[in-house]
Design a protein around this nucleic acid. Structure first.
Lengths: 223, 223
DNA sequence: GGCAGTTTCTATACGCGTAAGGAAACTACC
DNA sequence: GGTAGTTTCCTTACGCGTATAGAAACTGCC
């Protein structure tokens, strides 16, 4: 009977002085304290007490670091919670939970544009969404497609809104939207001209849940 | 009776040697011939026969250049077309037209995350969508919110899909998705485990129009 | 002609992400 | 102990976007 493999025999090669956890943890601190704009590989290296290129043995590149940061964030904030018993409401609540968690930390926007399963720690919610859709009568296949539609809608909402907000922030010139509406020809675009005055208010309003409800209703009706 | 203002009197200051149109046009050529990855301010400057910083008098920064490029692209491809008479089908067709045009040039993804009105030249389609929703019985306000939901869904679909594709392209390691699914615990995530095998196929399928149809149906039912 | 005023272009420099290559620190085997 | 192999770390360097400062080329007014 030989030892299977978990022998704690030291690995060959130079022993590491920093760990992936330390990299991610320090990065999280920098982001939390000074914003994602201050997170550079060079800064991160000096904070850890190492050199920039040393980081690349623990993290493939900066993008992967950001993905790990998002995963870390999800692990800390996304916890299984009490969800409604009614399946449709369960879908809505799970999607809204993901949405609100992501919307609360707007720095991940670029990472967000990642994939449909953005984090292991969000899997619980994904499961709840797919499960709820199945309980509503969808086939598993259609439930997955429904989940994807919800994810597109959610990710799109966050990406569009936060990048628009960011541009407004570091940019004092008039919005592209404003330019469009001032030069609007009521003859060619009567509907838009009609709502031009309210547009700003309408877009400022948070209508994520309304759209989500409509999307889910449509998905269920189609299935 | 004095001349109103369109006197072609030369403006003061050093006469420009390059124009914004030339900048955008050359940028378009580079992108078309060698891809957006080859478009750098330095390369653009040498192609024009100028210096990098000279570009910044005609374009605020690279992001604005990309926005202009997108606008230019929209101007060339988005033309008013024959749309269905039925208002709901009109909404679907207009949204799909925007979607297909954008999906066909995946380099704009970051720019896409811009705003709800991404280009003057898409206004015609936006008008058609809002107008169609009103004709379906929505109030103008709800029609605008409906348009925004459609835009979120559309932009999200494109952003998510193209960045996922890009990552797969310049990355031979297993997908994050694959990693997640291999380590999936059927006890905790029965639904996901159930569809794990089909997931790859399901996500490869283009379900944009299905989701769009569901979303619009839900929007109309709610209004 | 000369002297503002205005606009455009150029030179230089900074910090960024990271590719390439070599030095350093360990294990395993002789 | 010596040598080979392996992993980690450091040094250097490249091209990127662009901030800053000043030179250059024009107009209008004296």
């Amino acid at each position: 009977m030989q030892q299977p493999s978990p022998a704690p025999r030291r690995a060959p090669g130079r022993p590491p002085r920093i760990s992936r956890e330390e990299v991610v943890g320090t990065a999280r601190r920098i982001v939390a304290e000074e914003g994602v704009g201050k997170l550079t590989m060079r800064r991160l290296a000096t904070d850890i007490g190492s050199t920039p290129m040393a980081l690349y043995h623990h993290v493939r590149n900066k993008e992967e670091l950001l993905v790990l940061l998002l995963d870390d964030y999800a692990a800390r904030t996304l916890r299984p919670v009490e969800l409604p018993a009614d399946p449709r409401e369960r879908v809505l609540a799970a999607a809204a939970a993901i949405h609100d968690a992501l919307a609360a930390c707007p720095w991940i926007v670029e990472v967000l544009a990642a994939d449909d399963l953005f984090s292991t720690h969000a899997l619980w919610f994904v499961e709840r969404i797919v499960d709820g859709l199945v309980d509503c009568g969808l086939t598993p296949e259609r439930a997955v497609q429904g989940y994807r539609a919800i994810w597109y809608y959610t990710a799109g909402e966050i990406v569009v809104r936060t990048t628009a907000a960011r541009r407004r922030a570091d940019d004092d010139r008039p919005t592209y939207r404003e330019q469009v509406f001032t030069g609007l020809d009521p003859a060619r675009h009567p509907r838009l001209a009609q709502v031009a005055d309210h547009w700003e208010d309408l877009t400022a309003r948070d209508t994520y849940r309304d759209g989500l409800r409509a999307l889910v209703a449509g998905l269920l009706a189609a299935g």
